[in-house]
Amino acid sequence: MANDGKGTAANGSVGSDRVAIALDAATLWRATITLLRLFLGAWMLNSGYSYWAQEFGWPPAFPQPFGTLPASNQMLVTMVEVGLFDFVKTVEVVGGLCLIFGLFVPAATLMLLPVSAVVFYNAVFLNLRTDRLFSPTYMGVSCLYINVIVALAYIRHYLPMLSLRSTPGPLRDLARLPDVFRQPDHDHNT
């Protein structure tokens, strides 16, 4: 069940710093999403760290893979050579840290989605790993699945920007940016 947003709920806020947790399906759902978020963050952080670690001579979690088949080799090597991987791996580190520390989670999830999509494309369409399309232990495909599931769990944060019709606001709206640090999301337990 969801928090009614007014205070005490079966699985919601009972005060400013306390939260009541019912042993029900809603709790199970939130726990599952939290674990998926944390695992995705851990994976992204390791992936991004490994790239930068090699650049700085630190021990990486794993050497940067360059794919198995020629098209994958070509794409990954070219991305490194033209410097695009610097951007991608920075996104992975920043996004991964956000997911692990529970900061800007909807934005970080959205930011990581294109990375996960390219990882999936590389695995399935370039390396032709269709045999592992539904293998949960193969992060070449699983990172996209997890990313999409986590994004769907946070969809209420995306709904405002999915407006069918919209108009631009004044530049003074930028002054509202500090608000992102002042609005704790008490609908979430973690």
């Binding site: 079966a10 806020s13 009972v14 710093d17 306390r18 939260v19 009541a20 947790i21 019912a22 042993l23 939290t34 674990l35 944390l38 695992f39 963050g41 851990a42 994976w43 952080l45 390791n46 979690a61 991964g96 997911l99 692990i100 520390f101 529970g102 337990n189 973690t190």
Partner: peptide
């Protein structure tokens, strides 16, 4: 139903996240 501190939950999730990170590494 159990009542827990919001900060404790936050710290627990960060701890699990760091544990996952170490495990993946």
């Amino acid at each position: 139903m159990v009542t827990v501190s919001r900060n404790s939950l936050k710290l627990l999730s960060i701890g699990i996240g760091l544990l996952f990170t170490a495990a993946v590494y």
